[in-house]
Structure formats: C-alpha cells, structure tokens
Write a protein that binds this DNA or RNA. Structure first.
Length: 114
DNA sequence: AAGCTGACTATGG
DNA sequence: GCCATAGCCAGCT
C-alpha cells in the first residue's frame, strides 16, 4: 500500500472516533492504543482539535478522558455544547462528568478487535 | 534543528 | 482517593 494509513495518525483517530456508536463514549488512551500508539493519547486530543479538517463529521464529543470527564468541552463551540450533544444521545452527565462512564464506555480495541 | 505545547495516562506519596 | 511528578507522541514555533 501506499497511502494509507500513514497519511496521518489523525485520520486513524477520525476513523475510530467515527465508529463510536451513539450513546457510547471512549477515552483518548483507548483510541490512541487502537491507532497503534498507546502513549499518544495527547495526540488524539490534538487530532480531534483539527477534526474539522476531516471530510466527514467526527463525534469528538464522545471522546473523554480516562475518568469520563469532559475535558475537551472548552474546545467546543458554545459553553456546554459537548454536554448537550452527549445528553442528547442519552448520556447522563453531572458536573462535566459521565455518570455511568464504565457502563457506556466503548473500547475500539475490544469492539473492533484491534 | 531544538524546544515547547497539549482535549492524556500511569505511578508514587 | 486526591495531589504532584514523570513519561509519552506528534505537531507547531
């Protein structure tokens, strides 16, 4: 191949994030691991920051940190856009934190078999 | 080219 | 369980 995958670590992140089902959430670390770089959790955040560059819509609001905290909500438009998007999908949030995080947690490595 | 930054995570006290 | 520190990878200045 060619192209591909190395086209960007970012695209890999986008591909994974786009596959996160509604009402479910994932963590930066899990996504980074699914991309082949377990330590690149920070890069995942950076990638999502540039997600607008991607052709398709990337549900970045479904990506949280390891404790289910909406750490990236400040990078969204509006004040609580991220929270509203998640609640709109049925995710209960209190104090910028997902209540049943472990229950709705979606691990790409586990679900996608990576 | 070298250093800093960051939507993180793991470990130690 | 909370606070502080270190490691981490890729992009940006």
């Amino acid at each position: 191949m060619k192209t591909s995958e190395h086209d960007g670590f970012f695209l890999r992140v986008y591909e994974v994030v786009k596959q996160i089902p509604p009402g479910r959430v994932s963590s930066y670390g899990a996504i980074a691991r699914s991309c082949g770089s377990p330590g690149a959790a920070r890069m995942v955040g950076w990638a999502l920051n540039q997600c607008q560059s991607h052709s398709e819509y990337v549900p970045a609001h479904r990506v949280l940190n390891r404790v289910g905290l909406l750490t990236g909500k400040r990078h969204f438009q509006g004040r609580d856009l991220m929270r509203e998007l998640l609640e709109n999908e049925g995710v209960q949030i209190i104090e910028n934190q997902v209540v049943n995080f472990q229950e709705i947690f979606w691990d790409p490595v586990k679900e996608l078999g990576l």
